[in-house]
């Protein structure tokens, strides 16, 4: 675990960690606790959408371009531990992302419970669990695509585009479905978990494929 954290830190600077894992969560929780009244008890969706956008955009500072065929793995290719190092960093990236989303989700849940009391029923609790997996999957899907783009302009364009599509799709589905009774929590939960697992698997697999490809020319 310690080595995985160290491997991750070789990609994520201290500034990045502070920004993504302290500043962003603090701001979102603060917003949720003080201002969040857009969708009332369903405000967690707004927090989730913001989180998808911010964490996906911040990925530019860590593993940007790692899926691109032009990515230079540099020193990682000069050692037999390069692949293992990359794998550890990726797993830690997933782990921290999941933990951060879970913590924000949990604290926002407590805030909602305090604010809305009886309105924060079992269905809302379930929604918070769904939001956890959906948010995690949406970020993973976005970074999987945006990591193919190395320049800031292309990266940001693709990130905003993918985030917009995913966020509109999921939040409209969730908010609309929940409000008008067309909402199957089990299906949403299963969908979120399946998408999370697939996105983790695909992201890790493609980065390692790209790493191995860097030793071969013309592929």
């Amino acid at each position: 675990m310690k080595n995985s954290w160290k491997a991750y830190r070789t990609f994520a600077s201290r500034g990045y960690c502070i920004f993504c894992y302290l500043v962003i969560p603090a701001c979102l929780i603060l917003w949720h606790g003080t201002k969040g009244t857009l969708f009332g008890v369903q405000d967690i969706n707004v927090v989730s959408n913001s989180l998808v956008l911010l964490l996906a955009a911040a990925d530019y500072m860590t593993l940007n371009g790692v899926n691109s065929s032009k990515y230079g793995f540099g020193i990682l290719r000069c050692t037999s531990k390069g692949q293992e190092h990359l794998e550890r960093a990726l797993y830690m990236d997933f782990f921290i992302r999941f933990v951060v989303i879970a913590v924000i989700d949990f604290i926002c849940g407590i805030i909602s419970y305090q604010k809305y009391g009886a309105d924060f029923n079992k269905d809302m609790m379930m929604m918070h669990v769904i939001v956890l997996f959906v948010t995690f999957a949406c970020i993973n899907i976005t970074v999987f695509i945006s990591r193919f783009f190395t320049t800031m302009v292309n990266f940001m364009f693709v990130t905003y585009l993918v985030v917009s599509l995913l966020v509109v799709g999921t939040s409209v589905g969730l908010i609309y479905g929940f409000s008008f009774g067309h909402y199957n929590p089990v299906l949403w939960l299963l969908g979120g978990i399946v998408l999370s697992v697939i996105s983790v698997y695909a992201t890790k697999r493609y980065v390692l494929y790209n790493y191995r490809r860097s030793f071969l020319e013309g592929k």
Partner: peptide, 15 residues
């Protein structure tokens, strides 16, 4: 995008 601290940390782990 690595800083000098990260280069040291990476080499410590990799070699």
């Amino acid at each position: 995008h690595w800083n000098l601290e990260q280069t040291r940390m990476a080499q410590e782990l990799l070699f």
